[in-house]
């Protein structure tokens, strides 16, 4: 690790003041940042510890939830209101990382973890445009089984590894940010960037911006929702593909639906095309499959990940089928 100073912020305004200094980084649970610093992929000169700030979960007047950025992943997953009203969010968090990491990791830090692949970590041996802009990408023609099939660019084919953010994308969550210009809100769907020619920039935040909360708006039919993750081992692995979905049935037809996909793109992928295709139509396996195929119409698979569109399609068909019957665990 390169040397840095450490300070703990006592309140948000103080944190934002300290975080505005050059080469500063906010520290939550440290589960991604400390690891990246040890590999010298991240080299902040000032760490501002914000892990003790904004640690509450409260009901909003509208009937949603306001989740403090410092809330631990485990705390959010076990929260009674989340389990009962937004089960896809609990399920997504519980599918991610290990229990020890979920105990450390904060909600804000989960959003801020780097979009990444193994070549990004390999500082000594691989070229990576995300780590060193303009250096090239060894993943594109390398071992790319876990990489993106949607929205990637010549510069970068990494995927965003968060499970929680996939559920938040499906829920139209809103990110509350405080920076030198004051307080503002951003839709989670627009919070993470596609790589384009700047894969070194993962989010739309400006330097010094601090996430203070994530708001989940009310969604009645989210009680009928779930998250399914497909991976190479049964636990503690990144997703090959994942599906967060909520389904509102009207008899045997789809009244409304929310779908987001993980493991397929540089950001949590809201499947808006598939949703539009399904809304008002029949809740049949053929309709689910047709909608999924529409979502992947522009997929650009690489050498090792051509299975992803079909795997994601089958997973989505299975999840929606279970939700249509009301028995998705």
């Amino acid at each position: 690790m390169t040397p840095f100073t450490y300070s703990r912020a006592g309140e948000t305004a103080e944190a934002v003041r300290m975080g505005g200094a050059a080469a500063s980084a906010y520290l939550g649970g440290g589960t991604n940042l400390v690891d990246l610093m040890r590999e010298t992929v991240a080299r902040p000169e000032r760490l501002v510890d914000v892990s003790g700030l904004s640690t509450s979960i409260t009901d909003t007047d509208a009937g949603g939830l306001l989740i403090g950025a410092g809330v631990r992943n485990t705390t959010l997953a076990e929260h009674r209101a989340v389990r009962e009203r937004f089960p896809l969010l609990s399920r997504a968090i519980l599918a991610g990382a290990s229990a020890q990491i979920r105990n450390m990791a904060t909600v804000g830090g989960n959003l801020m973890q780097r979009t990444r692949c193994t070549y990004f970590y390999d500082a000594d041996g691989s070229r990576c445009n995300k780590r060193v802009p303009g250096s090239g990408c060894d993943a594109r023609d390398g071992f790319n089984r876990i990489h993106a099939v949607l929205g990637a660019s010549d510069a970068c084919v990494a995927t965003h590894p968060s499970d929680m953010c996939v559920a938040l994308a499906a829920l139209d969550a809103v990110v509350h940010v405080e920076g030198s210009a004051g307080v503002r809100t951003l839709p989670l769907r627009e919070f993470h960037r596609l790589p384009g020619d700047r894969p070194d920039v993962d989010t739309v935040l400006a330097p010094g911006d601090l996430i203070v909360a994530v708001e989940v708006p009310p969604l009645g039919f989210a009680t009928n929702s779930t998250y399914r993750k497909v991976r190479d081992r049964a636990s503690y692995a990144f997703a090959l593909v994942s599906v967060a979905a909520a389904l509102d049935m009207d008899g045997d037809r789809v009244r409304d639906v929310r779908i987001a996909l993980g493991g397929v793109a540089h950001k949590p992928w809201r499947a808006a095309r598939a949703e539009d295709a399904l809304r008002g139509g029949p809740a049949t396996e053929q309709a689910f499959r047709a909608a999924a195929l529409m979502e992947f119409a522009d997929a650009q698979p690489l050498r090792d990940n051509a299975f992803k569109p079909e795997l994601a399609t089958r997973t989505l068909v299975s999840v929606l089928g279970a939700l249509a019957k009301g028995d998705a665990a």
Binding site: Y6, R8, L27, G29, G30, T31, V34, D35, R38, L47, D49, S51, T74, S98, A99, Q100, I101, N103, M104
Partner: peptide, 27 residues
């Protein structure tokens, strides 16, 4: 592993299990 993948460094902080390899002591 010293990178949060194996769990060998697990300790309890205020009764909760965490990975001490990914924790800065000052925190």
């Amino acid at each position: 592993c010293n990178q949060g993948a194996c769990g060998a460094c697990t300790v309890l902080v205020d009764g909760e299990r965490i990975l001490s390899c990914l924790a800065l002591a000052v925190q």
